[in-house]
Design a protein around this nucleic acid. Structure first.
Lengths: 347, 347
DNA sequence: TGTTAGCACTCGACTTAGTTGAGTGCTAAC
DNA sequence: GTTAGCACTCAACTAAGTCGAGTGCTAACA
């Protein structure tokens, strides 16, 4: 059976209408609403063909048609018309970017939040597992009489603060000296050796310095380990309740539980890295997760400054793909644009 | 009308049963389930009195009775039997405390999470507005060729990292020198003066140092401002979906929207600070928030190390007060106990 | 051969009336 | 003061009936 132009027009009508109304679409609705110049009976015949092709389904006999995953896929691949960001959207994001340009992690969280506000879908940001991180630099900073802060900078340029109790008060100058010694040790020893310093039993000398060093190294090792764990932030999860497909509390509960399972979401976001910097779309069952079979995921990688990761939009399969993709594409371009401009200015 | 012992026993039965089942309780149920030695007809008479006293209500004629806010209040004030934490609960929390003792903010978030897991209610932690914070210390730490980190410690001992771009690479020794100069300026100038440095137009000198300082001060001022904003974390919001009172999606949506309004929650948590370190309970309308009239809040202040704030449990008015209060009380004692033990060891 | 009007049929959604049962309040007797 | 008994109430459920949006099929038409 040939998928002629008319069939595609009808499919498009069905998808558009269903995205807008969440109600199955009947032949008469299409005949009236879209001026295709054919009667409802003809549309009926065409719809029957579209169903045979697996592009639409009937929830039950004598109901209208609803797009199938395959139908959405065709729609997304061939019919989607993306738009550019509006000026308001652009400046909305630019403000966020400019205000957070030096806090990349926070910037991504804010971006996710804004993306959720603009699209009315749930968003997720993940930072990938950086398999082999190490300690780059440690700086001790005085906090109060009984504690100092060990600022640990990892090779991946993550910054972690660790509060460490000291046996006796230490002044800034002394801390700077200690920092130098520690950094010297770091640059001349492997990460595994430092790990051993941190966990091994080191006899502490008269004024307790060894023990103190040990705690610093332990904090540093812990910071690296923390950084190695992928982190995931979600935003706008509650938006899901606005969709009639989740007006049943049981379904909503199940969805929320799934969205809490960070490992699963990370798998979905980070799997399938075929084309690094393009927007990828998983429709319904394509994400291979039973619990999210009624959801679609639109995702893209970002790579900004020291941080890389994935940002994704999650909505019902009946989501406004054009809108979501446009906004996601737009903001990634915006962010990159601002970053480029800044680094141009600098050189 | 006298609230005799028998009436109170019946009220207690109603509250306990309603907490367990969420179904209105009839006189016959009480007669059968609780061995009060009186018939259902007598219980009916007593219930009629309890209703007149405003302690219980009938959702509709010919249905069983349900406790009113006033009924819960009496139950909480006079009938509640709290328990100590079980060994598992204690060690569960102790692990969390020991692992996060040096990250107080994170400790509170983790505690809230654990509290939510153990009680099956939503929890909230807030850090109060510290009206007058200032800059205590700034340390510059090298990050990479184009940026340094300004670690800002506020008077309230919050630690903030700010990435600052530098015109040219600066090494650690130079940064230590700069840090000293900056800290010298901080200790000899008021916060308002520093604010002026940060925002005012300072002509930058030949090698650009002034501008660089300006950015450091700006970051410091921003850090203080951030710290001044109360922060609020919620945990286990989804647990609310488990209660039949929110099985209607509209209600759930409204509740979730309210729980997103951080300002409102902060008001509820931080208002009414009559008795600083005790557990306080707001039942139903007592929280003065229409949207939370079917919810109760159990809250207490914490004051640990450098951080103080409020931690609260939110559930339906029909919540297991004994359980929630016991756990909340228990963990606050636990935390304080560990902190005490640690500071004892130190001195 | 493709298109269309017409018609019988399907089936979820809604309405209505009837039934059930848990619960009440009242009364009269113990 | 307590209780058995009884009439009454009302939400929740069930079954039957109606409605309407939608289909598939057929026969006629261009």
């Amino acid at each position: 059976m040939i998928l002629n132009d008319r069939k595609i027009k009808i499919l498009e009508a069905i998808v558009n209408d269903y995205i807008a109304t969440a109600e199955p679409i009947g032949s008469r609705t299409i005949a009236k609403k879209y001026d295709l110049g054919i009667s409802s009976a003809t549309i009926r015949n065409e719809m029957s063909d579209l169903e045979e092709l697996g592009l639409i389904v009937q929830p039950h006999t004598s109901s209208g048609r609803v797009p199938s995953d395959k139908g959405y896929r065709l729609y997304v691949d061939r019919l989607l018309r993306c738009r550019d960001l509006t000026d308001e959207e652009s400046s909305f994001f630019n403000d966020i970017i400019m205000n957070n340009i030096d806090h990349i992690d926070y910037l991504m969280q804010q971006t996710a939040k804004a993306l959720s506000l603009l699209t009315n879908y749930t968003t997720v940001v993940s930072k990938p597992k950086s398999k082999k991180d190490g300690i780059k630099h440690i700086q001790l900073v005085p906090l109060d009489e009984t504690s100092v802060i060990a600022v640990v900078i990892t090779d991946s340029k993550a910054i972690k603060n660790n509060i460490i109790r000291t046996p006796q008060p230490v002044d800034t100058a002394a801390l700077n000296g200690l920092s130098d010694i520690i950094n010297n040790i770091i640059s001349t020893h492997s990460f595994d050796e430092i790990k051993a310093f941190a966990t091994g039993v080191i006899p502490k000398d008269a004024d307790g310095n060894e023990l103190f060093f040990k705690e610093v190294f332990a904090a540093a090792v812990k910071s690296v380990a923390e950084e190695d764990d992928t982190q995931l932030y979600t935003s706008g999860v509650n938006k899901m309740l606005d969709f009639p497909e989740f007006s049943d509390v049981e379904r909503a509960k199940q969805l929320f539980r799934t969205l809490e399972e960070k490992d699963m979401l990370i798998d979905i976001l980070q799997g399938d890295d075929s084309e690094p910097n393009s927007v990828r779309i998983l429709i319904g069952n394509e994400n291979n997760l039973e619990q999210l079979k009624d959801c679609s995921v639109i995702k893209t990688n970002y790579n900004i400054g020291n941080t890389e990761g994935t940002i994704g939009i999650i909505g019902p399969t009946r989501m406004d793909y054009a809108q979501a993709i446009s906004v996601l594409n737009g903001i990634i371009k915006n962010i990159n644009g601002v970053i480029m401009a800044l680094s141009d200015k600098k050189t």
